[in-house]
Design a protein around this nucleic acid. Structure first.
Lengths: 150, 150
DNA sequence: GTTTCATGTAACTATTATAGTTACGTGATT
DNA sequence: AATCACGTAACTATAATAGTTACATGAAAC
């Protein structure tokens, strides 16, 4: 997983889990599917586990699976679990006491908060099951996947 | 400018320019106001120049100023000029032919495009002049700010 | 015309966020 | 008891971003 992000890894993995709910996936297998390392997988899926999206087991039959039905897990929940929002208020250090800086921060923060709300609302309409459906349809059709109307 | 971003530097600087339109600012002075380096300032303002938001001059009376009235420059234009959108489609390399990956990309891209549009629309309603107004109102703390002597 | 000053830019270094890796402990299954 | 897979700490590697140095170019001042 070179320069990708946790959200992609998480959604990809959950999509596969949704497509085979009976199956238990080891972090090693998942890592193989994502060109990354098992430890990285455990770290990312660990974020999902504390939010109750997946469960993990140790030992011989150990591994990962969904904690509930795929159509009961929205993409927004995964996004929140990863906790790396695309939109955040600006940091900016210099001249903290400058009124222009304050006005700028206020403007940017308001705009981002609004955009982030739209983003989450959009992602809340999609579930992991929707991702798995694409696989059921087959890879060929999915290459020109179209977002269905709301 | 430790770990801050170009947009903050740009907006802060343009805000000050709007508050003193007749003033010419050198990159050295601007750098001082932002705890950064003159070269960094030139690089960032250079992005604004090619979009016609500011103009620069060399030599003795050289420096930077707005290319047009502050109320004719929207924050969205600055955002676009910086060209570092907060929202971009996911890269993700592994398993390109996976239908789930394609579905995921599609979902994320659609959500981000929608959010980004909201963000830009919001920023388009704000101008650099709005930022300068905050200074005119005068937060107490900002009174000690001084522009460089003519 | 020469000096001075500020931008324009290339090339390099520094910092930092993120991912990758190694190592080993813990608990479950065989 | 042996094996397997997660849990996690600690370290290393990579890459995006910012900072720095150096110098050429052009404009104003003298």
């Amino acid at each position: 997983m070179k320069r990708n992000n946790k959200l992609s890894l998480a959604l990809h993995t959950l999509g596969h889990m949704a497509a085979a709910p009976e199956q238990v996936f080891t972090s090693e297998v998942i890592a193989g599917h994502n060109a990354t390392n098992p430890v990285v997988v455990r770290r990312v899926l660990g974020l999902l586990r504390v939010r109750g999206l997946v469960v993990s087991g140790k030992g011989h039959a150990g591994g990962w699976r969904l904690a509930r039905a795929a159509d009961q897990i929205t993409v927004a929940e995964v996004y929140d679990a990863i906790g790396a929002p695309f939109l955040t208020a600006e940091p900016l250090a210099a001249e903290k006491d400058c009124a222009i800086v304050a006005a700028m921060q206020s403007t940017l923060h308001a705009a981002m908060a609004e955009a982030e709300a739209v983003l989450r609302r959009h992602l809340a309409t999609r579930t992991i099951a929707d991702l798995a459906k694409a696989m059921a349809k087959g890879a060929k059709e999915s290459r020109d996947f179209r977002f269905p109307p709301r």
